[in-house]
Design a protein around this nucleic acid. Sequence first.
DNA 1: GCTTGACCTTCCAGTCACTGGAACCCTTAT
DNA 2: ATAAGGGTTCCAGTGACTGGAAGGTCAAGC
Lengths: 130, 130
Amino acid sequence: MNISDVAQRSGLPPKTIRYYEDIGLVTPPRGANGYRQFTEVHVHKLAFLGRARAFGFSIEDCRTLLGLYEDESRTSAEVKELAQTHLAEIEGKISALAEMRDTLRTLVHSCAGDDRPDCPILATLAASDS
Amino acid sequence: MNISDVAQRSGLPPKTIRYYEDIGLVTPPRGANGYRQFTEVHVHKLAFLGRARAFGFSIEDCRTLLGLYEDESRTSAEVKELAQTHLAEIEGKISALAEMRDTLRTLVHSCAGDDRPDCPILATLAASDS
DNA sequence: GCTTGACCTTCCAGTCACTGGAACCCTTAT
DNA sequence: ATAAGGGTTCCAGTGACTGGAAGGTCAAGC
């Protein structure tokens, strides 16, 4: 299977697949012409990676997850801990964004949005207090 | 005023201040020794930028905001639109993260986290359906 | 005057996970 | 023979810094 077929079937762009090979996440052999020769297994791995990335896992986490997936002697505790840590990170990001959102929303609502220059948004950014 | 004083008073690291000069957000003059000479105005601008960045505005948005702030003939409508667009982006990010969080949380909860290898998290990532 | 240490300067490289583009090779059909 | 549509590599850029090296400057103490 050539790279564009794999791209279609895994949902990842060819560039990304080459990049993943570059950093050692997949290692397809090469044909006589230098083309990468993918198998179903590669497609499966790449789709796995795509899903893990969609969950927001970092590349290094994805590498670990893939390793665990392929390791018959893994424990679900290892996977769970990784996922839990990541979940906590996501929750942290959400909190931070939610705080931004709340403040910004208040400011936006209190801004007239007309032709006059007075603006509580700019006033807050310029705030000498706080 | 030298850069480390400004750093302390604006809350931005010296590296960041130099970077902001590099991309033209502030333009302190230089002394005979080549040191940057900052004034209160620079401190104020940098603190403004720090707050805008804390709200998640991109550097380019910050540039625009600073421009609007310094433009006496601005309209609050311009500011409001920028802020509203950014608010929408934040909300979009929150939704995406919340979706990740929900799915991941469910998976984490359904994972035994013991010595056995069976793991719904890995099973989901490997899912051939979906 | 000399040294020491804390500043300041510039410039280069690295972060993260790709992505775009150039230049070039391979395959297949016409 | 040629043209289209694959494939390949390598280099550079993204955003917003950050770390580090190499070197100039300043103030204080001896």
